[in-house]
Design a protein around this nucleic acid. Structure first.
Length: 1026
RNA sequence: GCCUUGGUGGCGGAAUUGGUAGACGCGCUGGAUUCAAAAUCCAGUGUCUUCGGACGUGUGGGUUCGAUUCCCACCCAAGGUACCA
């Protein structure tokens, strides 16, 4: 046997087993098995050009450990991986370079695959999916068509085929239909329906379909040339690129997710997902209970006559939603959103100019502005009045931008005594603030506490609590027909159109302006080629550049635009689907990814059912994870899937943060008044020196002497060469440098001169260095002159120059070390900083593990057998079974960091015990295998096995090896441990108490005092109370 | 502001029903080995200390024989959300 194989050569071993697994398809999952199934899923990545950094594999490693563990436990495991490969970056790159996004994407995927492969994941690659692959997005288009052909029946509380709705219309019109539909849906009878033209019928049905075309206010991002979903906007600007976003009305495809609001909320109770994630979905859906109330608008024409208000009503009504119908007698004004459609209709001539100016000013303000200043109160009186439903008193109607058009009805009944915003508004405009709460002072602020509310000055509500008054108020409103109880949701329907190229085409063409679906058998409708990826000159989406983008209904194929005759050949939809379309059912497609007849076979979905464990980032809380739940519920209603929640358990892995590196720098400047000129003299100083400076800028005589002397001299030299600075004072500024690339840092130090090689850091490369004693001028430095950096924890990202690449780690320490270290770092869910230095710990653990198995590598078989078949000692067995117990519990609790520790303890103990017993080391290899699969396979083979370790049964824990005959009791006084005493494990309470009290050390501790009480917890502790 | 999560040595972190706080690893200190370095191995490493001990899990209270763990109030950090009627 070769000497080389005696050492732990991870490069050789890892390459060998990765090849073995690929060739033997070790992890290929079968859709037919007698074993119980387990579906472990990691969120699939978007293959970006930057490749993976060490933060990305964290969740994949966790899922992989769990998958491998479940295989050892006898499960048929589905553990797939794929790519969310449609997306903006590839398209932006295409716009800049002209390279087709498909090519960029393909290259990026290749790179991802290499990186993933070298980490030794047990993925079933035969099931890989790519959302940009036509064979995949065929089924995304298919689901879109299913949604188009469906409506939501509130009576049965599920989606149904649109045909069932049509048949109701034909028989009885829509008066009794309880459906999720557009607000402006008209009421019609059966005969009216039957007399509608085909186009009219289509228009009506669009108001019911689960995906529908409508004019919607959208978030338009001019810089990106596309609309964005709410969750793609952060602080009023686009999440990607930070561009401004404005509101704009456009005809767009939308998804009627609001139909599922309640079920999406209720479903959260039945799934084991992290509480913060559930909370953010709950907030996003934003359910609130209250009442809808109608206020009649009073006739305003006689207002100028100084006479009493005329009570003759205009035909207008303002509908509001309130969560506090109990406070209805506290209403002293109404506020409409400036965009509210009634504003123009009710404004009096006298107020017209002012109102119009305000409406215009609001429309001009970006969402960002409006959000940024929440403090300013602004609004305008319309001149109109509404009538209080009970008191019949007139209530002034205002408009104000604190009321949002997109929430509720875009109008509020203002109750200043009970709502702080209404209160501020009333104060600001001197509007009456009636107090309707008993025993509450509202002179300073509104009173919003429901729990202690007692209503007063409110006619029939007097003396009632919030709950009672709410109930009563709703009942009274219903009696007079001016209101009813209502549940309102913040959730809006999801806009589904994107004005982009690199996304799924809609399987839609237009006949007479009405959308028609392409028949299922003609899918996929593939993306056309285009010359340019930008919008067209007429402002149409990029698909408008395609010359071959028309649908020939007779031939059932895509033909040239020139052939459009609107008889047989029609224009195709120019928008594409958003990023979340492809990810909303991918987990089900993995079950049967090569099926061309169906999205998945019935057998496959019946076998795999749902995802047992889903691991991914929390950033998808209100995007992917909400939309995919919506689609799953729809698929469930249609009978395609057996579960209406697709993932039983979900874990958000924490972010791995980077340790960014910085210098502190002092720069010499010349200062005169407000003018400051750099002298291009920079000195790198330590963090300590920086923190020691009382002022971060000032005149140089404030600096420590060596720094003062040096800067003084250098600035003089500067002044010799640069004239015209008479009257300027020598000053300095101290600051934090730009990010230093972490790859340049070695043991917290950086060679200053080597920074000259880096274009971005050249300036610092020319700096001098203050070592705490004296200043080393740049010209006297050698390559060895190094300065200490200081660290700050930041998100790991390319732009912060703190990215650590897993390839380099694998090269130096191996994949098994990287896997162990990522887990060892800390709890999976928490975010934690990456520090490469610590990896030596797990790396030397693997070397120690390897050493333990050395007797098996002995070329002398006889000698080898005599050691390795030795009977295990009691200590050996205790160590092993302690570890089995711990590791099994840890994996099941997703506490992977602690099992790495227990492996270390185990190997340390077995090494100390000089254990060479095969019956110990064999199960140990299986224990380690989910975490460090390569070394485990190699050791397994060297133990004499010819099959992969992947399905070797997990060792069985046996309690009997852990039973102790004695127990070391901590003896504590008033809860503080002072010393320890060893007693037999089965010793009784009284005996222990007597033995402890009789002991010398106890007497010493008590110093003659009598203990008040003695607590003995057998097997745990003795506590003496003095 | 609201919601959520967290706060333990120089650092990452452990302590599974309230029962020996700081496991394991990094780093650091000393030693062995080496011409030297790397690697490896051994010992030590919470703070203070008059070397007896005392203190110690963000702060202040409480419950308990006993609290990192439970309760109350507060401070700080991270993430989410935000004129939501």
């Amino acid at each position: 046997m070769k000497v080389i194989s005696m050492n732990y050569n991870f490069r050789e071993i890892e390459a060998k087993w990765q090849k073995y697994w690929a060739e033997h398809e070790t992890f290929k999952a079968s859709n037919h098995s007698d074993k119980p199934k387990f579906y472990a899923l990691s969120m699939f990545p978007y293959p970006s050009g930057a490749g993976l950094h060490v933060g990305h594999p964290l969740g994949y490693i966790a899922t992989d450990i769990y998958s491998r563990y479940k295989r050892h436990k006898g499960f048929n495991v589905l553990h797939p991986m794929g790519y969310d490969s449609f997306g903006l970056p590839a398209e932006q790159y295409a716009i800049q370079t002209g390279q087709h996004p498909a090519i960029t994407t393909e290259n990026n995927i290749k790179r991802y695959r290499e990186q993933l492969d070298q980490l030794g994941f047990s993925f079933d690659w035969s099931r890989e999916v790519r959302t940009s692959n036509p064979q995949y997005y065929k089924w995304t288009q298919w689901i879109f068509i299913q949604l188009f052909h469906s409506w939501y029946n509130k009576t049965s509380d599920k989606a149904e085929n649109i045909e069932t709705l049509v048949s109701v219309f034909e028989k009885e019109g829509n008066a009794n239909v309880q459906a999720a539909c557009d607000d402006d849906t008209p009421t019609f009878s059966a005969s009216e329906w039957n007399h509608f033209s085909a186009k009219e019928k289509q228009e009506i049905l669009l108001k019911y379909r689960l995906t529908y075309l409508a004019d919607t206010e959208v978030n338009w991002c001019p810089a990106l040339g596309t609309v964005l979903a709410n969750d793609e906007i952060v602080n009023g600007v686009s999440e990607r690129g930070g561009h401004p976003v404005i509101r704009k009305k456009m005809t767009q495809w939308s998804m009627r997710i609001t139909a599922y609001a309640q079920r999406l909320l209720d479903g959260l109770d039945n799934i084991d997902w992290p509480q913060p994630l559930k909370d953010s979905q709950t907030n996003w859906i934003g359910r609130s209970e209250g009442a809808s109330v109608k206020f009649k608008v009073l006739n305003v024409e006689l207002e100028d006559e100084n006479s009493k208000f005329k009570t003759q009503n205009l035909p207008f009504e303002i509908e509001v939603f309130t969560t506090r119908p109990d406070t209805i007698f506290g209403v002293s004004f109404m506020t409409l959103a400036p965009e509210h459609e009634l504003v123009a209709k009710i404004t009096t001539p006298a107020q017209k100019a002012e109102v119009e100016a305000y409406v215009e000013a609001t429309a001009k303000r970006s969402e960002r502005d409006r959000m940024a200043d929440v403090k300013t109160v602004s609004g305008v009186f319309t001149g109109a009045y509404a009538e209080h439903p009970f008191t019949k008193e007139p209530i002034p109607i205002w408009i104000g931008d604190y009321v949002l058009a997109s929430y509720g009805t875009g109008a509020v009944m203002a109750v200043p005594c009970g709502d702080q915003r209404d209160y501020d508004f009333a104060k600001h405009y001197n509007i009456d603030i009636p107090n309707i709460f008993e025993g509450v002072d509202i002179s300073e602020e509104a009173f919003a506490d429901k729990a202690t509310t007692i209503i007063a000055n409110s006619d029939f509500l007097n003396g009632l609590s919030y709950k009672e008054a709410t109930k009563k108020a709703i009942a009274e409103l219903e009696k007079i027909g001016q209101g009813k109880g209502k549940v309102n949701y913040r959730l809006r329907d999801a806009v589904f159109s994107r004005q982009r190229y690199w996304g799924e085409p809609f399987p839609v063409y237009y006949v007479d302006g009405m959308p028609q679906m392409i028949d299922l058998e003609h899918l996929p409708l593939e993306l056309p080629e285009v010359e340019k990826y930008l919008p067209t000159e007429t402002g149409e989406p990029p698909l408008g550049n395609a010359t071959h983008w028309a649908w020939d209904r007779l031939k059932a194929e895509v033909v040239s635009n020139d052939l459009i005759d609107n008889v047989n050949v029609f224009p195709l939809e120019l928008n594409t689907m958003p990023g979340w379309a492809g990810s909303s059912q991918y987990f089900n497609r993995y079950m049967d990814p090569r099926n061309n007849e169906a999205i998945f076979s019935k057998e496959a979905i019946d076998y795999w059912q749902d995802v047992d464990l889903y691991i991914g980032g929390s950033e998808h809380a209100t995007g992917h994870l909400l939309y995919s739940r919506f689609w799953q519920k729809f698929m469930f209603d249609m009978g395609y899937v057996p579960k209406d929640e697709y993932a039983k358990k979900l874990i958000n892995q924490g972010m791995i943060t980077g340790e960014s590196a910085f210098f502190n720098i002092i720069e010499g400047r010349l200062k005169k008044g407000d003018e400051e000129v750099s002298t291009f003299c920079q000195i790198i100083i330590s963090k300590g020196t920086y923190d020691g400076l009382t002022l971060k800028k000032g005149t140089i005589n404030k600096l420590p002497k060596p720094l003062f002397d040096f800067l003084n001299e250098r600035i003089d030299i500067y002044l010799d060469f640069n004239k015209g600075y008479e009257g300027y004072t020598k000053s300095y500024i101290a600051f934090k440098s730009t990010n230093i690339d972490v790859n340049l840092v070695d043991k917290e130090q950086v060679s200053i001169l080597r920074l000259l090689e880096n274009e971005r850091l050249k300036v610092i490369g020319n700096a001098h260095y203050f070592d705490g004693e004296e200043v080393v001028p740049n010209e006297k430095m050698t390559e060895e002159t190094r300065a200490n950096v200081f660290r700050e924890i930041e998100k790991m990202s390319k732009s912060k120059y703190n990215v650590v690449n897993p390839d380099a780690i694998c090269e130096e320490y191996g994949a098994d070390s990287l896997r162990l270290y990522e887990m060892f770092l800390g709890p999976l869910e928490q975010s934690k900083p990456w520090n490469t230095a610590g990896i030596t710990g797990v790396s030397s653990f693997l070397k120690k593990l390897w050493k333990l198995y050395m007797p098996f590598f002995d070329s002398d078989a006889e000698r080898s057998r005599s050691v390795t078949e030795a009977e295990p000692t009691a200590d050996n067995l205790k160590t092993l079974h302690k570890t089995i117990k711990k590791v099994q519990e840890d994996i099941e609790h997703f506490s992977f960091n602690t099992s790495v520790s227990s492996f270390m303890i185990c190997v340390n103990e077995l090494t100390a015990q000089k254990c060479t017993s095969k019956s110990i080391l064999e199960p140990l290899a299986i224990l380690v295998s989910p975490y460090a699969p390569h070394i485990a396979e190699e050791l397994w083979e060297r133990l004499g096995h010819t099959e992969s370790i992947a399905e070797a049964p997990f060792p069985k824990f046996e309690e009997k090896y852990l039973v102790e005959s004695t127990k070391e009791y901590p003896i504590s006084f008033n809860g503080k441990t002072r010393f320890k005493l060893e007693f037999p494990a089965d010793m009784g309470k009284e005996e222990i108490e007597a033995a402890v009290l009789a002991h010398e050390k106890t007497k010493e501790q008590l110093q003659g005092r009598d203990p008040k009480r003695i607590i003995v917890v057998p097997g745990r502790i003795v506590n003496i109370v003095e």
